[in-house]
């Protein structure tokens, strides 16, 4: 605001009513869009579980033996006027639906310990996938149509057609259980051996050893997408005039690629890494389930079997919130680095 008062020309014009500075207007617009999406998710998350015909109590208790007293308590809670319930929910969207019915604890206490395993798994896999995927994309896009490109594009296309959890199971059966001459080398699941102190250096090695298979699985699946995007992006940049100019100046092919084409092609890819967080979340859910890693994904599968409605609602809100936030960050970064989109 202070910045705006210094430059009178940039104050909001009376006629237009908007911000004159396109960067600020862009940022406000994107933030507003993200907030509207989150608001939609909030409302959707509440009404979805109440709008369907039938007694919500039946949904909350499906597949479980519940003593009559708890049912009465649930009825007292769920049969109140919907407006009253909604106000309570909006005040505290995560815990407003009550404690987890399976664990009988506040949903935050259930979710809390599951946060780190997921971040560790997904973070490591995303970093590895980005580095290798970008490298593959640059190499095959720059030498389009050559042997390397054909092999790498066809491989990524097959990987792209694969359900990630199936690839995970095959990895498990080959490298953890072992078939034929291949001995089982890696642990079949979990994040550490029981009784290992994960805060000691020996514990870290143990965790890393457990992470090899799940991280490889996720990274291979993610990198297929990143390399395809990077490849398309580098092919587009390669045809641009400035690349032609760089060549005409007599620069070596390697320098044209490294100093001219790659920095420009990286931008859309990096944005897509953020935008793909929704896809990444999906992969984490099934892979954690297959590798019995007790993170948010396993918790989701746990919550849907039953179902544990309050926990499921809290997880859906958490996943959606994280993805909406990542999208906003991507939008703002893109707007910052590429002024053309700020219109």
């Amino acid at each position: 605001m202070a910045l705006l008062t210094d430059t009178p020309a940039r104050t909001p014009s009376a006629a237009g009513g908007g911000w004159a500075n396109p960067s600020i207007r862009y940022a406000i617009k994107r933030t507003g869009a993200a907030l509207s999406t989150f608001l939609f998710v909030l409302i959707f998350n509440f009404f979805l579980f109440r709008i369907l015909p039938g007694d919500p109590v039946a949904l909350y208790t499906r597949g479980r033996n519940v003593d009559p007293e708890s049912i009465r308590a649930l009825e007292a809670k769920l049969h109140r006027p919907i407006g009253q319930q909604f106000v309570e929910y909006i005040k505290n969207p995560f815990t407003g639906n009550g404690p987890s019915v399976k664990y009988n604890e506040s949903v935050w206490d259930v979710i809390g310990p599951s946060l780190w395993p997921t971040l560790l798994l997904v973070g490591t896999a995303t970093i590895i996938a980005t580095i290798i995927g970008v490298w593959l994309g640059i190499r095959s896009g720059w030498n389009r149509g050559e042997r390397f490109d054909v092999v790498s594009t066809n491989t990524t296309l097959v990987l792209y057609s694969m359900p990630e959890f199936w690839f995970g199971m095959i990895m498990l059966i080959v490298f953890a259980v072992g078939i034929g001459p291949i001995p089982g080398m890696f642990p079949t699941g979990g994040l550490s051996d029981p009784g290992v102190d994960t805060s000691s250096p020996a514990g870290w090695v143990n965790v890393a050893w457990h992470l090899v298979l799940p991280v490889t699985t996720l990274a291979v699946i993610y990198l297929a997408e990143y390399s395809l995007i990077m490849r398309a992006s580098i092919i587009e940049e390669r045809g641009q005039d400035y690349v032609q100019t760089a060549r005409a100046k007599g620069l070596m092919d390697k320098m044209v690629r490294r100093d001219h084409a790659v920095p420009n092609a990286l931008l859309p890819t990096m944005t897509l890494v953020f935008l793909n967080l929704g896809f990444v979340v999906g992969g984490a859910i099934t892979i954690e389930y297959v590798y019995s890693i007790h993170g948010l994904g396993s918790l989701t599968v746990d919550a849907l079997q039953g179902p544990d409605v309050p926990l499921l609602q809290a997880l859906f809100l958490l996943f959606s919130g994280a993805v909406i936030f990542a999208n906003l960050v991507a939008d703002l970064l893109y707007g910052y680095f590429d002024p053309r989109v700020r219109t």
């Binding site: 509207s36 999406t37 369907l52 929704g278 979340v281 999906g282 989701t300 859906f316």
Partner: peptide, 23 residues
């Protein structure tokens, strides 16, 4: 256009899971 945007951003698998659970 707004509604399209909302559904584009919401992570696919969690959305499908809550819908399938409810239905």
């Amino acid at each position: 256009d707004r509604v399209t945007d909302w559904f584009l951003v919401i992570p696919y698998l969690p959305l499908a899971i809550v819908l399938a659970t409810v239905l």
